[in-house]
Protein backbone atom coordinates (compact mmCIF):
# COMPACT_ATOMS: atom_id res chain seq x y z
CA UNK A 1 0.00 0.00 0.00
CA UNK A 2 1.96 2.93 -1.27
CA UNK A 3 0.94 6.50 -0.87
CA UNK A 4 2.18 9.75 -2.36
CA UNK A 5 1.76 12.80 -0.19
CA UNK A 6 2.21 16.38 -1.30
CA UNK A 7 2.49 18.89 1.49
CA UNK A 8 2.10 22.54 0.57
CA UNK A 9 4.06 22.03 -2.60
CA UNK A 10 4.87 24.98 -4.81
CA UNK A 11 7.11 25.24 -7.80
CA UNK A 12 8.06 28.35 -9.62
CA UNK A 13 10.23 28.98 -12.64
CA UNK A 14 11.63 32.48 -12.41
CA UNK A 15 8.59 34.55 -11.69
CA UNK A 16 6.12 32.12 -13.21
CA UNK A 17 4.35 30.00 -10.65
CA UNK A 18 3.62 26.61 -12.17
CA UNK A 19 2.31 24.89 -9.04
CA UNK A 20 0.90 26.92 -6.18
CA UNK A 21 0.62 25.52 -2.66
CA UNK A 22 -0.80 22.12 -3.50
CA UNK A 23 -1.47 19.51 -0.84
CA UNK A 24 -2.83 16.13 -1.80
CA UNK A 25 -2.69 12.47 -0.90
CA UNK A 26 -2.81 9.80 -3.53
CA UNK A 27 -3.51 6.33 -2.25
CA UNK A 28 -4.31 2.95 -3.78
CA UNK A 29 -6.71 2.84 -6.70
CA UNK A 30 -6.87 4.84 -9.87
CA UNK A 31 -6.72 8.60 -9.54
CA UNK A 32 -7.11 11.01 -12.40
CA UNK A 33 -5.07 14.19 -12.45
CA UNK A 34 -7.14 16.55 -14.45
CA UNK A 35 -6.55 20.01 -15.76
CA UNK A 36 -6.44 22.00 -18.94
CA UNK A 37 -3.21 22.25 -20.92
CA UNK A 38 -0.68 24.31 -19.05
CA UNK A 39 -2.33 23.81 -15.67
CA UNK A 40 0.82 22.33 -14.13
CA UNK A 41 0.05 18.63 -14.47
CA UNK A 42 3.42 17.77 -15.94
CA UNK A 43 5.20 19.87 -13.33
CA UNK A 44 3.32 18.04 -10.57
CA UNK A 45 4.10 14.69 -12.16
CA UNK A 46 7.78 15.64 -12.46
CA UNK A 47 7.92 16.52 -8.77
CA UNK A 48 6.13 13.32 -7.78
CA UNK A 49 8.59 11.26 -9.80
CA UNK A 50 11.67 12.99 -8.40
CA UNK A 51 12.58 14.81 -11.58
CA UNK A 52 11.99 18.28 -10.29
CA UNK A 53 12.71 19.80 -6.90
CA UNK A 54 9.76 21.54 -5.27
CA UNK A 55 10.49 25.21 -4.67
CA UNK A 56 8.62 24.91 -1.38
CA UNK A 57 6.91 22.09 0.46
CA UNK A 58 7.57 18.37 0.33
CA UNK A 59 6.73 15.47 -1.93
CA UNK A 60 6.82 12.19 -0.02
CA UNK A 61 6.49 8.59 -1.12
CA UNK A 62 5.63 6.44 1.89
CA UNK A 63 7.07 9.11 4.13
CA UNK A 64 10.39 9.60 2.36
CA UNK A 65 11.12 12.56 0.08
CA UNK A 66 11.30 11.63 -3.60
CA UNK A 67 13.77 14.27 -4.76
CA UNK A 68 17.31 12.91 -5.03
CA UNK A 69 16.23 9.62 -3.55
CA UNK A 70 17.03 6.96 -6.10
CA UNK A 71 15.82 4.23 -3.75
CA UNK A 72 12.28 5.58 -4.23
CA UNK A 73 12.26 4.17 -7.74
CA UNK A 74 11.94 0.64 -6.41
CA UNK A 75 8.38 1.63 -5.49
CA UNK A 76 7.78 3.93 -8.42
CA UNK A 77 7.03 3.34 -12.06
CA UNK A 78 7.08 6.37 -14.33
CA UNK A 79 5.60 6.74 -17.80
CA UNK A 80 6.70 10.17 -19.05
CA UNK A 81 4.95 11.92 -21.86
CA UNK A 82 8.17 12.14 -23.87
CA UNK A 83 8.83 9.85 -26.78
CA UNK A 84 11.58 7.37 -26.15
CA UNK A 85 14.67 7.85 -28.25
CA UNK A 86 15.88 4.29 -27.81
CA UNK A 87 14.64 3.48 -31.28
CA UNK A 88 17.67 1.34 -31.96
CA UNK A 89 16.60 -1.22 -29.34
CA UNK A 90 13.88 -3.80 -29.74
CA UNK A 91 10.90 -3.60 -27.42
CA UNK A 92 12.12 -6.61 -25.49
CA UNK A 93 15.66 -5.23 -25.13
CA UNK A 94 14.31 -1.95 -23.82
CA UNK A 95 12.03 -3.54 -21.24
CA UNK A 96 14.76 -5.95 -20.24
CA UNK A 97 17.22 -3.08 -19.73
CA UNK A 98 14.70 -1.49 -17.40
CA UNK A 99 14.32 -4.76 -15.51
CA UNK A 100 18.08 -5.05 -15.12
CA UNK A 101 18.42 -1.48 -13.95
CA UNK A 102 15.84 -2.23 -11.29
CA UNK A 103 18.17 -4.95 -10.08
CA UNK A 104 15.55 -7.69 -10.40
CA UNK A 105 16.75 -11.20 -9.67
CA UNK A 106 15.19 -12.65 -12.81
CA UNK A 107 14.98 -9.82 -15.33
CA UNK A 108 14.17 -12.17 -18.21
CA UNK A 109 11.01 -13.54 -16.63
CA UNK A 110 9.92 -10.10 -15.43
CA UNK A 111 10.37 -8.79 -18.97
CA UNK A 112 8.16 -11.48 -20.48
CA UNK A 113 5.52 -10.93 -17.84
CA UNK A 114 5.46 -7.19 -18.42
CA UNK A 115 5.27 -7.64 -22.19
CA UNK A 116 2.35 -10.00 -21.73
CA UNK A 117 0.52 -7.56 -19.52
CA UNK A 118 0.60 -4.86 -22.17
CA UNK A 119 -0.02 -7.42 -24.94
CA UNK A 120 3.21 -6.65 -26.72
CA UNK A 121 4.79 -10.10 -26.86
CA UNK A 122 4.48 -10.58 -30.60
CA UNK A 123 6.09 -7.30 -31.81
CA UNK A 124 8.68 -7.21 -29.00
CA UNK A 125 11.38 -8.53 -31.31
CA UNK A 126 11.08 -5.50 -33.55
CA UNK A 127 12.99 -2.27 -33.16
CA UNK A 128 11.10 0.45 -31.31
CA UNK A 129 11.43 2.94 -34.15
CA UNK A 130 9.17 0.73 -36.26
CA UNK A 131 6.41 0.87 -33.61
CA UNK A 132 3.15 2.76 -33.88
CA UNK A 133 2.33 5.41 -31.33
CA UNK A 134 0.12 3.03 -29.35
CA UNK A 135 2.83 0.38 -29.26
CA UNK A 136 5.39 2.88 -28.06
CA UNK A 137 3.04 3.92 -25.32
CA UNK A 138 2.59 0.31 -24.29
CA UNK A 139 6.30 -0.44 -24.32
CA UNK A 140 6.81 2.58 -22.05
CA UNK A 141 4.18 1.20 -19.69
CA UNK A 142 5.76 -2.25 -19.78
CA UNK A 143 9.12 -0.69 -18.90
CA UNK A 144 7.54 1.18 -16.00
CA UNK A 145 5.73 -1.81 -14.48
CA UNK A 146 8.40 -4.42 -15.05
CA UNK A 147 9.44 -4.26 -11.39
CA UNK A 148 5.82 -4.29 -10.19
CA UNK A 149 5.95 -0.92 -8.45
CA UNK A 150 3.41 0.07 -5.84
CA UNK A 151 2.95 3.43 -7.53
CA UNK A 152 2.55 4.13 -11.20
CA UNK A 153 2.68 7.68 -12.52
CA UNK A 154 1.50 8.15 -16.08
CA UNK A 155 1.70 11.48 -17.85
CA UNK A 156 -0.90 11.73 -20.60
CA UNK A 157 -0.77 7.98 -21.26
CA UNK A 158 -3.54 7.93 -23.84
CA UNK A 159 -2.21 10.68 -26.08
CA UNK A 160 -2.18 9.56 -29.67
CA UNK A 161 -3.35 6.05 -28.88
CA UNK A 162 -6.14 4.70 -31.06
CA UNK A 163 -9.51 3.90 -29.42
CA UNK A 164 -9.11 0.14 -29.32
CA UNK A 165 -5.69 0.29 -27.70
CA UNK A 166 -6.98 2.99 -25.40
CA UNK A 167 -9.60 0.57 -24.11
CA UNK A 168 -6.91 -2.04 -23.51
CA UNK A 169 -4.71 0.39 -21.62
CA UNK A 170 -7.63 1.54 -19.54
CA UNK A 171 -8.52 -2.04 -18.64
CA UNK A 172 -4.90 -2.63 -17.66
CA UNK A 173 -4.77 0.42 -15.41
CA UNK A 174 -8.15 -0.42 -13.96
CA UNK A 175 -6.98 -3.92 -13.04
CA UNK A 176 -3.85 -2.56 -11.42
CA UNK A 177 -5.91 -0.13 -9.42
CA UNK A 178 -8.22 -2.93 -8.29
CA UNK A 179 -5.29 -4.96 -7.07
CA UNK A 180 -4.14 -2.28 -4.67
CA UNK A 181 -1.67 -0.36 -6.79
CA UNK A 182 -1.60 3.38 -6.62
CA UNK A 183 -2.20 4.64 -10.14
CA UNK A 184 -2.09 8.31 -11.00
CA UNK A 185 -2.58 9.40 -14.55
CA UNK A 186 -2.90 12.86 -15.98
CA UNK A 187 -5.12 13.91 -18.78
CA UNK A 188 -6.90 16.90 -20.17
CA UNK A 189 -9.54 14.75 -21.81
CA UNK A 190 -12.54 14.42 -19.54
CA UNK A 191 -14.03 11.37 -21.15
CA UNK A 192 -10.89 9.37 -20.38
CA UNK A 193 -10.75 10.34 -16.76
CA UNK A 194 -14.46 9.89 -16.27
CA UNK A 195 -14.31 6.38 -17.62
CA UNK A 196 -11.34 5.26 -15.60
CA UNK A 197 -11.33 7.14 -12.32
CA UNK A 198 -14.05 8.07 -9.89
CA UNK A 199 -11.47 9.83 -7.80
CA UNK A 200 -10.02 12.95 -9.33
CA UNK A 201 -7.62 15.71 -8.46
CA UNK A 202 -8.25 18.85 -10.45
CA UNK A 203 -5.55 21.45 -11.02
CA UNK A 204 -6.28 24.74 -12.67
CA UNK A 205 -3.56 27.34 -13.29
CA UNK A 206 -1.24 25.60 -10.87
CA UNK A 207 -3.73 25.49 -8.03
CA UNK A 208 -5.45 22.51 -6.52
CA UNK A 209 -9.02 23.25 -7.53
CA UNK A 210 -10.85 20.16 -6.36
CA UNK A 211 -10.28 16.70 -5.00
CA UNK A 212 -12.36 13.60 -4.47
CA UNK A 213 -15.23 11.78 -6.15
CA UNK A 214 -16.34 13.92 -9.04
CA UNK A 215 -20.03 13.39 -8.30
CA UNK A 216 -19.42 14.68 -4.81
CA UNK A 217 -17.47 17.63 -6.10
CA UNK A 218 -20.32 18.43 -8.40
CA UNK A 219 -22.78 18.51 -5.55
CA UNK A 220 -20.59 20.93 -3.65
CA UNK A 221 -20.94 23.55 -6.29
CA UNK A 222 -24.27 24.86 -5.07
CA UNK A 223 -23.90 28.37 -6.32
CA UNK A 224 -24.30 27.22 -9.88
CA UNK A 225 -27.50 25.94 -11.54
CA UNK A 226 -27.76 22.16 -11.42
CA UNK A 227 -29.56 20.07 -13.98
CA UNK A 228 -32.01 17.41 -12.86
CA UNK A 229 -34.03 15.00 -14.90
CA UNK A 230 -37.46 14.11 -13.46
CA UNK A 231 -40.13 11.65 -14.51
CA UNK A 232 -43.53 11.38 -12.93
CA UNK A 233 -47.03 10.12 -13.67
CA UNK A 234 -48.12 13.66 -14.52
CA UNK A 235 -45.27 15.77 -15.88
CA UNK A 236 -47.42 18.80 -16.70
CA UNK A 237 -48.84 19.08 -13.20
CA UNK A 238 -45.36 18.68 -11.76
CA UNK A 239 -44.11 21.40 -14.06
CA UNK A 240 -46.78 23.76 -12.84
CA UNK A 241 -45.81 23.11 -9.24
CA UNK A 242 -42.09 23.54 -9.93
CA UNK A 243 -42.38 26.77 -11.84
CA UNK A 244 -43.99 28.33 -8.81
CA UNK A 245 -40.91 27.62 -6.71
CA UNK A 246 -38.16 30.27 -6.53
CA UNK A 247 -35.47 27.57 -6.29
CA UNK A 248 -36.31 26.43 -9.80
CA UNK A 249 -35.03 28.44 -12.72
CA UNK A 250 -36.35 26.63 -15.75
CA UNK A 251 -38.40 23.61 -16.70
CA UNK A 252 -38.28 21.96 -20.08
CA UNK A 253 -40.34 19.11 -21.45
CA UNK A 254 -38.38 16.25 -22.92
CA UNK A 255 -39.84 14.77 -26.09
CA UNK A 256 -39.65 11.20 -24.89
CA UNK A 257 -41.30 12.07 -21.60
CA UNK A 258 -39.99 13.66 -18.43
CA UNK A 259 -38.70 17.07 -17.45
CA UNK A 260 -35.34 18.77 -17.51
CA UNK A 261 -35.18 21.08 -14.55
CA UNK A 262 -32.60 23.74 -13.90
CA UNK A 263 -32.20 24.28 -10.19
CA UNK A 264 -30.75 27.41 -8.63
CA UNK A 265 -30.80 26.44 -4.95
CA UNK A 266 -29.97 22.81 -4.60
CA UNK A 267 -30.66 22.43 -0.87
CA UNK A 268 -34.17 23.87 -1.02
CA UNK A 269 -34.98 21.89 -4.13
CA UNK A 270 -33.84 18.53 -2.81
CA UNK A 271 -35.86 18.94 0.38
CA UNK A 272 -38.83 20.60 -1.29
CA UNK A 273 -39.35 18.26 -4.22
CA UNK A 274 -41.06 15.38 -2.31
CA UNK A 275 -43.28 17.88 -0.48
CA UNK A 276 -44.40 19.60 -3.66
CA UNK A 277 -45.05 16.29 -5.37
CA UNK A 278 -47.16 15.00 -2.50
CA UNK A 279 -49.11 18.27 -2.37
CA UNK A 280 -50.05 17.88 -6.03
CA UNK A 281 -50.65 14.14 -5.63
CA UNK A 282 -47.97 13.38 -8.19
CA UNK A 283 -45.84 10.21 -8.10
CA UNK A 284 -42.18 10.73 -8.90
CA UNK A 285 -40.79 7.86 -10.97
CA UNK A 286 -37.26 9.09 -11.58
CA UNK A 287 -35.09 11.81 -10.11
CA UNK A 288 -31.56 12.01 -11.43
CA UNK A 289 -28.93 14.68 -11.67
CA UNK A 290 -28.27 14.91 -15.38
CA UNK A 291 -25.03 16.83 -15.53
CA UNK A 292 -22.83 15.24 -12.96
CA UNK A 293 -20.49 14.49 -15.77
CA UNK A 294 -16.92 15.54 -15.34
CA UNK A 295 -17.35 17.96 -18.19
CA UNK A 296 -19.63 20.19 -16.16
CA UNK A 297 -17.46 19.89 -13.07
CA UNK A 298 -14.48 20.82 -15.07
CA UNK A 299 -15.91 23.72 -16.99
CA UNK A 300 -17.21 25.07 -13.73
CA UNK A 301 -13.83 24.92 -12.02
CA UNK A 302 -11.96 26.31 -14.97
CA UNK A 303 -14.34 29.21 -15.41
CA UNK A 304 -14.29 30.19 -11.77
Amino acid sequence: MAEIVLEKVSRWFGNVVAVNDVSMRIGPGVTGLLGPNGAGKTTLMAMMSGFLAPSAGEVLLDGAPVWRNTEAYRQLGLVPEREISFGYLTGRQFVRANAELQGLSDPGAATEKALERVELVEPSGRRIDTYSKGMRQRVKIAAALVHEPGVMLLDEPFNGVDPRQRMQLMALLHDMGETGHTILFSSHILEEVERLARHIEVVVSGRHAASGDFGAIRRLMTDRPVQYFLRSDDDRALAVALVAEPSVRAVRFVDSGGLDVEVADLGTFVHGLPVWARAGDISLIEVSPSDESLESVFSYLVAR
Binding site: S49, F51, L78, R82, I84, S85, N98, L101, A144
Partner: peptide, 16 residues
Protein backbone atom coordinates in the same frame (compact mmCIF):
# COMPACT_ATOMS: atom_id res chain seq x y z
CA UNK B 1 20.97 13.03 -27.24
CA UNK B 2 19.40 11.55 -24.11
CA UNK B 3 19.82 14.76 -22.15
CA UNK B 4 18.54 16.70 -25.14
CA UNK B 5 15.25 14.90 -25.63
CA UNK B 6 14.70 13.93 -22.01
CA UNK B 7 14.69 10.19 -22.59
CA UNK B 8 17.42 9.98 -19.97
CA UNK B 9 14.59 9.69 -17.42
CA UNK B 10 14.21 6.04 -18.33
CA UNK B 11 17.72 5.39 -17.10
CA UNK B 12 17.44 7.68 -14.12
CA UNK B 13 14.08 6.49 -12.79
CA UNK B 14 15.88 3.52 -11.32
CA UNK B 15 17.48 2.68 -7.99
CA UNK B 16 20.91 3.31 -9.48
Amino acid sequence: PEVDDGSLVYLLAKPV
